[in-house]
Simulated assay, not measured.
Amino acid sequence: MSKSVVVFSCSVAALILTFLLFSMLGILFFYWGDHTAVKDSLSTVSGIFGGITTIGAAVIAAYLFNDWKIQQRYQNTLQFGLDVYSNFKILDDKFTQIKNELCLVQAHYEAHVVPKRTNALDYFLDKSEEISRKNLEILIAFNKFHESYLNYLIVTDQENKIDETLPYTSDSINKYYELLGKIKFESESQKRKFLIDELLIPPFSQIDSYIYNYYIKSILIKIRE
């Protein structure tokens, strides 16, 4: 319960008690000595006090309900936002892993395949094919992120953002998935190298950074509010 709710509840209770106290003092002041009048007046005030108490309780209950909705909305934002961030981290780790492996294969090609060293080409072909088969991991990780982000937008009443950049991001991921998967089907080593080079330059090399800057940062800022 927030401090504002406690203060509001105490204020309502104090107001009701003040009304009761002044009513009793007024009755005693004006009807002192007339027991019948005092008794009837106190009975009337007690009836009025009961009604005011009921209204006051209803007002406090409504205020508590509104405060609960605000707290629950924040909890939902926090829970679904952290779920998006968790799925992004998995996706980001996949991207980082694949980029690092592609960089190593790229360096191996320049250092060993170009000079035509023994077994260098076989290693390049085997390793690049192994990396190429990880394209499905990227797609699966993105789909989980995509689903959690959609849920976050719905829960936080931001459905208007669904069509802003998500189609573009999904298209970029699909192109990355297709290009990475294409490597294993390319028999010519030089063409494989060109595919690897393309994956290691923008826009493909910056997909994870773009997702963080556009999606994750806004979520973290909203959670911090």
Rank of each mutant, 00 (worst) to 15 (best):
H108F: 08
Y109G: 00
E110D: 11
E110Q: 14
E110S: 13
E110W: 07
A111P: 00
A111R: 12
H112A: 10
H112D: 09
V113M: 03
V113K: 02
V114R: 10
V114Y: 09
P115Y: 03
K116T: 10
K116I: 04
K116Y: 06
R117Y: 13
R117M: 15
R117T: 10
R117K: 14
T118M: 14
T118Q: 13
N119W: 11
L121K: 09
L121P: 00
L121C: 07
D122A: 10
D122V: 05
D122F: 09
F124M: 03
L125A: 03
D126M: 10
K127N: 09
K127M: 10
S128N: 03
E129M: 06
E129H: 07
E130Q: 15
E130V: 08
E130F: 12
I131K: 06
S132K: 02
S132Y: 04
R133F: 10
R133P: 00
R133Q: 11
R133M: 10
K134M: 08
K134I: 00
K134W: 03
N135F: 04
N135M: 00
N135P: 03
N135W: 02
N135Q: 09
L136E: 13
L136F: 12
E137L: 14
L139V: 04
L139I: 04
L139N: 11
L139W: 03
I140N: 07
I140T: 12
I140Q: 05
A141L: 01
A141Y: 00
A141D: 04
F142C: 01
F142G: 01
N143F: 04
N143H: 07
N143D: 12
N143S: 14
K144W: 06
F145Y: 07
F145T: 01
F145L: 14
H146N: 15
E147W: 07
E147T: 15
E147H: 11
S148A: 12
S148T: 06
Y149H: 12
N151V: 13
Y152L: 05
Y152G: 01
Y152T: 02
Y152P: 05
L153W: 03
L153G: 06
L153M: 10
L153P: 05
I154P: 04
I154E: 08
V155D: 05
V155W: 03
V155T: 11
T156K: 05
D157G: 03
D157F: 12
D157Y: 13
D157L: 08
Q158T: 09
E159R: 12
E159I: 13
E159G: 06
N160D: 14
N160R: 12
N160C: 08
N160P: 00
K161N: 13
K161G: 06
K161L: 15
K161P: 03
K161W: 13
I162P: 07
I162V: 15
I162C: 07
